[in-house]
Design a protein around this nucleic acid. Structure first.
Lengths: 237, 237
DNA sequence: CGGGCCATTGAGAGTCGTCAACGACTGTGG
DNA sequence: CCACAGTCGTTGACGACTCTCAATGGCCCG
């Protein structure tokens, strides 16, 4: 069977929604979608605009953000490779999607994608499951945003980012020191955690002073004492 | 055609997921589900427990709540009649579901319900759409919880509750004074808004003092000046 | 070398949480 | 019928946490 052009080198083919499709089905997909590269800082979808595209993230990190009329912003979700992007079955996009790093997407016109869902029930079911997972995650974050202190937020954020980075460079020792780069600026971390830049910075230096983490420079972070960090995360998930 | 026993007097039949089914399909449903009544304060689903049931809310108001290990609680969603309850395709329940008023549910064993979804694609699609809607709502609340002041939260909460209550007693004048009963105690309002009882109470009396609302007694609220309330809600959805 | 952007640090102020007291209302039992 | 406890809501005093404003220094790039 001829392999599809687009999908053949897809880095996330078996983790994304398309993993539910057969090779034959992928061939059809190939004709409908296209690759799209995005530079860091570029916005793919604007909240309030017509919901035109859906797709999968292949590479990079995207932010999903909401903002109020007077400019206050909140990042309501981060998207990583293999995550689904977009809002099927709605005329308008709810949130703004912006690239935090250079990124690559595999996109479909929304209507086309809805047709795909209808033709491929397994894919629709997978999307339903993912949407439930995203809903659960969003609700967990509501607890954090509403009830956690700044220290708890920063600590649990670092633990979460370490899990994500750690799985990539999968290490043998689960509790030894880990070093990784945050894909976010302090300002973006603040937008995720519902804090200000200054508060995030202060909490980071506080954790450093306590010997729980190190800040080698740039956006690198080293977790020195994960248990201590977990203790400070308390309320978080 | 013989009408089904359970579904025939269902108050939300055409608004809930079942609205997508034919009469024949409803007949099958009838054998699988059952009615369940819940007293105010009773908990239907405990976070962390096995996810056993799914269903539709027929009557009453339920809260969906998350709590941290040390007891801090946050209401992450409110459920009204015709809303879907439960978490298909997951072994454990993510959140606790508790009745705020006496309530009535139409429930199915989770596995049974998953089978229903597979057999009735239109229902599955409807559930997907609702889940996306719930996700959007949860994310909007994240903005509120992270960035709004106490006054903004209370004002937008009152506007939201008025919309909900107002549609029931559908009035001709869209901006005249409305009176309605909150189905929540001050403590529960605080849990929804991520505040404390005292702060909610103070904001309410502040709005009353400003002539924006009245508090006739009990849990009744009268909106006197909706525009002023909207102005104070600002950042909210 | 100068201009941005980013991160850190300090000082001060404001909002909201905590603790506490009190009144209204309800249901219970003597 | 009344004392009583329990729940709910309000109000006050106080303090802590976080935001705001401001200054500084590092780093990268033109």
């Amino acid at each position: 069977m001829a392999v599809t052009e687009i999908c053949v080198d897809c880095a996330v083919r078996d983790q994304a929604l398309c993993g539910s499709l057969t090779d034959a089905e992928l061939g059809a997909l190939n004709r409908l979608g296209r690759r799209q590269t995005i530079a860091r800082g570029e916005t793919v979808i604007w909240a309030g605009d017509e919901s035109i595209i859906c797709g999968n993230l292949l590479e990079g990190v995207l932010k999903l953000s909401a903002s109020s009329s007077d400019g206050r912003e909140q990042i309501v979700g981060l998207l990583y490779p293999a995550d689904f992007v977009g809002r099927p079955y709605a005329d308008d996009a709810d949130f703004t999607v912006t690239a935090l790093t250079d990124a690559e997407l595999c996109v479909f016109p929304r209507k086309t994608f809805e047709g795909l869902l209808e033709d491929h029930v397994r894919m629709e079911r997978l999307l339903l499951q993912r949407t439930f997972a995203a809903l659960g995650e969003a609700r967990s974050r509501m607890l954090m945003l509403a009830r956690s202190s700044a220290e708890e937020r920063v600590a649990s954020f670092l633990l979460g980012m370490a899990d994500r980075a750690g799985s990539a460079s999968c290490r043998a020792m689960p509790d030894g020191p880990v070093t990784f780069d945050l894909p976010l600026t302090r300002g973006q971390v603040a937008d995720v955690l519902g804090l200000t830049i200054e508060t995030v910075s202060r909490q980071m230096t506080k954790l450093k002073a306590a010997g729980v983490i190190s800040l080698p420079g740039g956006r690198a972070v080293t977790l020195r004492d994960r248990d201590a960090l977990r203790a400070r995360a308390e309320a978080a998930s």
